[in-house]
Design a protein around this nucleic acid. Structure first.
Length: 1131
RNA sequence: GGGCCUAUAGCUCAGCUCGGUUAGAGCGCUUCCCUGAUAAGGAAGAGGUCGAUGGUUCAAGUCCAUCUAGGCCCA
């Protein structure tokens, strides 16, 4: 079946039909062909649409911009008032010019100005009073140091969904926040001041030090604000919450008083890494910086049992910290592990059964066995009698005991180990600590009195040896924590501390977690769920300076009496003086004391400040100053809990936990419903960005170079946001080229031709979608799918999927729809222009949350000027909805078949080395779906492949076609199971043509080597058709395209004519002509080329805008292959 | 030491839920084609022991187990 008659297709490729031209243009165009030679036919006496002023074409300079004079370029925002709208009264509604080339970062700065001039962000918050609310909480970044590229990541996600939800009609509050307190701030200030620990700070003065901390925070907030604005993160930075503000601190106090009231805020010993030289505990963060490899004594010590069935036998205990043996309090065993008496004939010791060989050696034999549980409370003789430890020294059970190393019997010294502390406390054992806070044994201890703890090891080991208690001693190399400041070995040390008994609310926390949606889902029962399952009490207090002071006042005469203060007003009440103006920080708060009538003693505040995580976990209510500030109650209640929060994965035990814990403890409900948990951003080399490695990419330079949209797209849609990702210039360049510029160029193309045709959607009569061209209907249908998919992806917090479908769509839009429809745009086809306008409207809105800048520019230039009631910003526009009436069943499949056929056709041409400009007579298509393709799509294929007619391979007759058959394993496997390979073999061996014929009418039978036979059905077999001699054939996935390679003189002349067009167009470009310039042209050629030029002269002239087209004597442009010389000049 | 994540082309990543016999895309490289919107587009090619081993299965990149390496969080 041919797609059009030969005569028609020969000329129509180069011509346009009269009916499609407006009369005025036809008149002008007729004049333009007056000089065309006599070869004209009815078909070519047609106008050029270019009689209207067409924007200038691009010249050689890549910086020349179409449609705007140079000072009007986008990097000169002043020249183009952002607020200007065309279409004021009396003027026609026309698109604003869109340059073909755009400087994206410059364009973005222009948009930032536009937003700020118009107050667009504020307008986006100005929703109707009854708008549904969608609540988002800003997890406050610590304003400590300058923002890194990883900060952009979370901030992109914090921006995309609020923009999306705003467009959907929700009211989305976006209050910025800053985490101001905490050790990192103190450390930064210490560095600035050249300090080396707490004594320096105390000497400097707490008031002065905290003032410096406040100053440092404010300084860094400025830098964060610049970055935030530049990346287009819309958040209300004019009214942020700051954890250091008095109202915030008071809210935190209130929450603590609630927790205290429930009996969940308690004081207890806490074992923490401690530097005896600096006299301070270290945070985990500091701890991690100070590991050093050291050699310690590894000793196996005998603890003789003094009761139980094995009385007289020695427990064998392993330790690498002999100094802790002085305060030995108990020995722990695992309740479920087997313990044995092992003997080498002469000696007997007790060890865990799995460790007999590793701890003792090969020649030890098991004599007796018990389970750890049975050893509970067996007493033993302790290794040293240097300090008093009453009611102790027996075997206890501990689940944390392992049999990975040592002996499976673990010496317990509760003052120096967190596990030890927990286990001993469960048995009511005393906590005895013979070491002072400077790391030395108390002076009156025998043997080691006054010794620095580490230096006591050799003395103690020697004493054990002398008393026959040392079983074995080795040197043990391991990494041991040291102070990162002074390299002193740290000790784990029990100090009093304040705790929140989160373990008492563990079940509620687990229940709240069940109600929470995690993205990705694995976190819920993995990293985060595990953490909750193994919940430990929240260690709240810090012996530091810059933090929310713990609001507990204690009676100095009776330390058991404490008051938890919930506000400055409460404090005023207690003191009888007005404290409402007090800065609730140290040291001022430390000076406030009070007495209670009838009680002796004075109440003084405890010295600690609290963990800054509690500050940030309190933000849902503290950001409003709840419950003290007027109006805070309403604000809080309508915005709790949040629908959405988002941070990187390092916050699982940080903010994600503190937020859920504070919410659950104070309000019995977690503060968030959906939580997106991002992977980290790594440097291009796959490692963490660090100064040390010199691989840092700062966000501002990245955005200055590639634009914020590119960086945002990368964060949202490049790779999986759940895994760690590498960022680099290449990735961003690719996004600019593939996504942003492709989109931009489609817009620029549309505006170029719409303006050329003086077309506007507001004023044109546009055919209804059902009457438009097949590709229009395809695109409109496809766009509805896009709306559905992007919406679903964003509802599911999946920006990666949203980005992927948008990128694919933009590619198809540009490289299939626009490419295939160029000629319709050239002649101002209203259906094509309307279709593209409608689609750009939708796709611009769909992309707006991801790339807010470029979409805003397009909205201002392409939608606003031609749409009288358009939203003034794309971000104030409504989110697109699926228009079911535009969906066309099956069209997407048909178009995709047409595209596959086109691709195969190109491959067949390439294989045969026949260039596309050479028309070919015929192509045959082998595809089960060929008949569904339809005439219109066949015509598209013909034109794209430069083929005159298209036919079905099946109709071409058996003698032209060779068949081959292979198994469709997926189907076959279901039916034949184990027989699959044998049946597949039989199919491959069968006579393919016969098989194909049989299958057309139902089932067929194939026979295997052994004579067995099987029924197969059509979908069990993939039949491939392949034509014989004289054809160029490519087939793939069951589809075949065969090109008839026979080229006759007529075809050859048509091909030469098309070559001539190319030569002339190149000459036009080389001459720097604008695309609308008319030319006078003479040519010289011989032989077949001359024949071709004479035959096709009119259509060539038409194509290259020649007002005269004369054979003459040579010219300045020559094409040797063609034997053609032309000269042209502007008419 | 524990938990989780990752491992596929020189590079960046899809595919793994739900197993199917030619493992994809982009970047880069080579050759060619197309082009008066495009910084583009297309075809072909070179480039893969799908981290390793074992198992399940007619069939494993895909499911299971173990291991290795890297990352993150926590000890």
């Amino acid at each position: 079946m041919s797609c059009r008659s030969l005569a028609e297709s020969t000329s129509s490729a180069l011509s346009r039909t009269r009916s499609e031209m407006s009369s005025s243009r036809t008149a002008a165009a007729s004049a333009s062909v007056q000089g065309v030679s006599s070869a004209r036919t009815a078909n070519v006496v047609l106008g050029m649409p270019g009689t209207v002023d067409r924007p200038r074409g691009r010249c050689k300079s890549p910086h020349r911009r179409i449609g705007r004079v140079s000072q009007d370029a986008p990097n000169a925002p002043a020249a183009q008032p952002a607020t200007a709208l065309s279409g004021t009264a009396g003027e026609p509604l026309r698109y604003r010019p869109v340059p073909a080339h755009v400087d994206l970062p410059a364009m973005e700065r222009e948009i930032l100005d536009l937003w700020s001039e118009r107050g667009t962000f504020a307008a986006s918050l100005d929703t109707p009073a009854d708008a549904p609310r969608w609540t988002f909480y800003e997890g406050p970044p610590t304003a400590n140091g300058v923002p890194g590229t990883h900060h952009v990541e979370a901030r992109v996600f914090k921006d995309v969904f609020p923009r999306f939800k705003t467009m959907q009609g929700y009211h989305v509050e976006r209050k910025a926040g800053w985490d101001c307190h905490g050790l990192p701030v103190e450390i930064a200030v210490e560095k600035e001041l050249g300090f080396n620990g707490k004594p320096d700070i105390e000497a400097y003065g707490i008031a002065e030090f905290n003032a410096k901390c406040r100053e440092s925070v404010l300084r860094n907030v400025d830098v964060f604000e610049d970055m935030t604005e530049r990346m287009g993160y819309w958040t209300d930075m004019a009214h942020p919450y700051r954890t250091m503000d008095a109202s915030y601190v008071e809210s935190v106090w209130w929450a603590l008083s609630q927790i205290h009231g429930k009996g969940l805020l308690v004081e207890d010993y806490r074992v923490a890494p401690y530097c005896p030289r600096c006299g301070t505990t270290l945070s985990d963060h500091e701890l991690a910086q100070g590991y050093e490899t050291v050699v310690d004594p590894s000793v196996y010590v005998r603890f003789p049992l003094t009761s139980g069935p094995w009385e007289g036998t020695d427990l064998l205990v392993w330790t690498t910290t002999p100094w802790t043996l002085v305060s030995n309090t108990a020995v722990a065993v695992h309740p479920d592990v087997a313990y044995v008496v092992a003997s080498n004939g002469a000696d007997r010791v007790v060890v865990a059964e799995p460790l007999v060989a590793t701890a003792l050696g090969e020649d030890w034999k098991v004599v007796e066995t018990v389970t750890g549980r049975d050893m509970e409370r067996w007493t033993y003789r302790r290794p040293f009698d240097l300090v008093e430890i009453p009611d102790a020294h027996f075997v206890v059970l501990g689940d944390y005991v392992t049999t990975d190393d040592g002996t499976g019997l673990v010496h317990q010294s509760p003052a120096f180990g967190a596990d030890d502390m927990a286990v001993c406390k469960a048995y009511g054992l005393p906590v005895v600590n013979p070491i002072t806070t400077d790391g030395h044994f108390e002076a009156d201890v025998d043997l080691v009195g006054g010794a620095f703890f580490k230096e006591a090891d050799p003395t103690l080991v020697a004493d054990l040896d002398a008393r026959g208690l040392l079983f074995r001693k080795l040197d043990y190399e391991h990494s041991y924590p040291h102070c990162w400041r002074c390299h002193t070995p740290l000790m784990y040390f029990a100090l009093p501390a304040w705790y929140i008994r989160t373990t008492a609310r563990k079940d509620e926390l687990l229940a709240q977690n069940e109600q929470t949606n995690w993205y990705p889902e694995t976190i819920k029962h993995g990293r985060y769920g595990d953490w909750l399952e193994n919940n430990i009490d929240w260690s709240l207090s810090r012996n530091r300076f810059w933090g929310t002071p713990l609001p507990i006042w204690r009676n100095d005469a009776d330390p058991s009496k404490v008051v938890c203060v919930e506000s400055l007003a409460h404090l005023s009440e207690l003191t009888g003086t007005d404290q409402s103006g007090l800065d609730p920080h140290r040291p001022f708060i430390d000076d406030v004391t009070f007495t209670v009538e009838g009680e002796p003693g004075t109440y003084r505040r405890v010295p600690e400040v609290i963990d800054a995580w509690f500050d940030s976990g309190s933000m849902p209510f503290a950001q409003w100053g709840y419950p003290h500030v007027e109006g805070s109650k309403e604000k809080f209640e309508r915005a709790y809990p949040a629908q959405y929060i988002c941070e990187a994965i390092d916050q699982t035990r940080g903010w994600f936990y503190s937020l859920m814990a504070v919410g659950t403890l104070v309000f019995d409900e977690s503060s968030y419903e959906n939580v997106v948990c991002l992977g980290h951003i790594l440097a291009e080399d796959g490692r963490k960005m660090s100064k040390h490695l010199g691989n840092i990419l700062l966000p501002m330079p990245l955005m200055d170079e590639h634009g914020a949209d590119a960086l945002r797209w990368f964060m949202a849609a490049s790779g999986s946001p759940w895994s760690a990702r590498r960022i680099g210039h290449n990735a961003l360049t690719e996004i600019v080229r593939k996504v942003l510029l492709t989109y931009w160029n489609t817009v620029a193309f549309h505006v170029l031709y719409a303006r050329a045709a003086d077309w506007s959607p507001a004023e044109s009569t546009v055919p209804p979608p059902a009457e438009r061209a097949v590709l229009d209907r395809w695109l409109l249908s496809k766009t509805q799918d896009l709306v559905r998919e992007v919406t679903a992806a964003l509802e599911d917090f999946d920006t990666q999927r949203a980005g992927a479908v948008l990128a694919t769509f933009v590619d198809e839009l540009s490289n299939w729809y626009v490419r295939r429809s160029r000629k319709r745009f050239w002649r101002g086809d209203a259906a094509a222009l309307a279709t593209l306008h409608e689609v750009l409207d939708v796709v611009t809105r769909l992309m707006a949350p991801l790339v807010p800048f470029v979409t805003e520019r397009v909205w201002q230039d392409v939608i606003v000027p031609v749409t009288p009631d358009a939203a003034s910003s794309v971000h104030l526009a409504t989110w697109p909805e699926v228009d079911e009436s535009l969906l066309v069943e099956g069209l997407a499949q048909r178009v995709s078949l047409a595209r596959r056929v086109t691709e195969l056709g190109r491959a067949a041409r390439a294989e045969a080395k026949v260039r596309t400009r050479q028309p070919l007579r015929r192509a045959l298509i082998g595809s089960a779906h060929y008949d569904n393709l339809g005439d219109a799509l066949r015509a598209e294929v013909c034109e794209e492949l430069n083929i005159l007619e298209l036919g079905s391979l099946a109709d071409a007759g058996a003698d032209l076609v060779e068949y081959s058959a292979k198994a469709n394993f997926r189907q076959l496997g279901k039916r034949h199971g184990k027989q699959t390979p044998v049946v597949a073999q039989a199919i491959a061996a069968a006579h393919a043509a016969d098989l194909a014929t049989q299958l057309e009418s139902g089932t067929a039978t194939v026979t295997g080597d052994g004579g067995a036979s099987w029924q197969v059905e059509a979908d069990d077999v993939i039949i491939t058709e392949r034509p014989r001699e004289g054809w160029s054939v490519v087939n793939e996935q069951g589809e075949t395209v065969a090109l008839d390679l026979a080229i006759d003189d007529e075809l050859r002349r048509a091909g030469l004519a098309r070559e001539a067009v190319r030569v002339i167009q190149e000459a036009r470009k080389a001459a720097g002509l604008e695309i609308t310039d008319r030319i006078v042209l003479t040519w010289a050629a011989e032989g077949e080329t001359a024949d071709a030029l004479r035959e096709h002269g009119a259509s060539i002239a038409d194509e290259v805008l020649a007002v005269s087209f004369e054979a003459g004597s040579g010219g300045d442009v020559r094409d040797e292959d063609l034997g053609l010389a032309v000269s042209l000049s502007k008419a």
